[in-house]
């Protein structure tokens, strides 16, 4: 039996929509954000529309049931039902949208704000564009010493950072559940792998209060680590972050 084209289109859209939900929310266990899904579906609808209407005959077939519904005298009862149901559905939708809820309003923050050119860290004004990890050179020059530094960084991490960022560096430490924004997941390819070490140094040393205005609201609970750690400890912990996750810091030099 041939499925009517209108039904085909609706089925395709429903399939894609629930496909996204099933794949992300159930199979991958990582929910797809509703805002993103809405935009995705907008363009999927556009794509389906394009495929179903580029041909004149097929378009006529597609809209035939709708046309019939509006024009065909024999479909009077259906027409009346649809004309009654559509405004009701629209009204219900509007009601659901506008209904107040206990959900806190969305907070949109830029997670990687552009860093300032210079920042005041440990009482010194440092140029973030030029700042480099003083220990990074040992990775090639003296691998043994590098391992030692990474080990020291690991100790700093376990003593200070893992409570929030997790012992697997995945942002799921014991306290993570209580925090919003949640601690960063360093394993993710979109976090430290995208950044230069100087950026991490700036973020660790100045913490949430050091975020620029565009990264507001200033509710990041990241402490200002320059008050608690020494400069070399921060550099070592940065070594550890990259070493454990296997990421490379962003750099403009070839290996």
């Amino acid at each position: 039996m041939k499925i009517p084209r209108l039904l085909q289109a609706v089925l395709v859209l429903a399939g894609v929509y629930y496909g996204f939900i099933i794949v992300f929310d159930i199979l991958l266990d990582a929910v797809i954000p509703s805002s993103l899904l809405a935009m995705y579906m907008f363009f999927v609808v556009a794509g389906v529309f394009m495929v179903f209407t580029y041909d004149e005959d097929q378009t006529r077939e597609l809209v035939a049931p709708i046309k019939a519904l509006v024009e065909d005298p024999s479909k009077r009862i259906w027409r009346n039902i649809v004309f009654a149901v559509v405004p009701l559905v629209a009204g219900a939708g509007a009601y659901m949208q506008m209904q107040p809820s206990f959900e806190a309003p969305l907070e949109l923050r830029t997670i990687h704000p552009a860093p300032p050119t210079t920042a005041k860290i440990f009482g010194k004004r440092v140029n973030l564009l030029k700042l480099e990890n003083p220990y990074r050179k040992f990775e090639k020059e003296d691998p043994e010493k590098f391992r030692e530094l990474v080990e020291e960084g690991a100790i700093v991490y376990i003593q200070n950072c893992q409570y929030c960022h997790g012992d697997k560096l995945d942002g799921k430490g014991p306290y993570a559940a209580g925090l919003n924004p949640t601690p960063l997941n360093f394993q993710d390819v979109g976090t430290i792998a995208q950044l230069q070490e100087s950026y991490l140094f700036w973020r660790i040393a100045t913490g949430g209060p050091g975020l620029p205005k565009e990264a507001a609201p200033w509710i990041s609970s990241m402490p200002v680590w320059q008050d608690f750690l020494k400069e070399d400890e921060i550099w070592k912990v940065i070594l550890y972050l990259y070493d454990y996750t296997g990421h490379h810091p962003r750099s403009w030099e070839s290996e």
Binding site: V31, P33, S34, S35, L106, L108, G171
Partner: peptide, 15 residues
């Protein structure tokens, strides 16, 4: 990503 608080919790982070 623009996330609701519920999604943020479910994902365990903004990433």
């Amino acid at each position: 990503l623009v996330l609701t608080n519920e999604e943020l919790k479910a994902l365990g982070g903004p990433y």
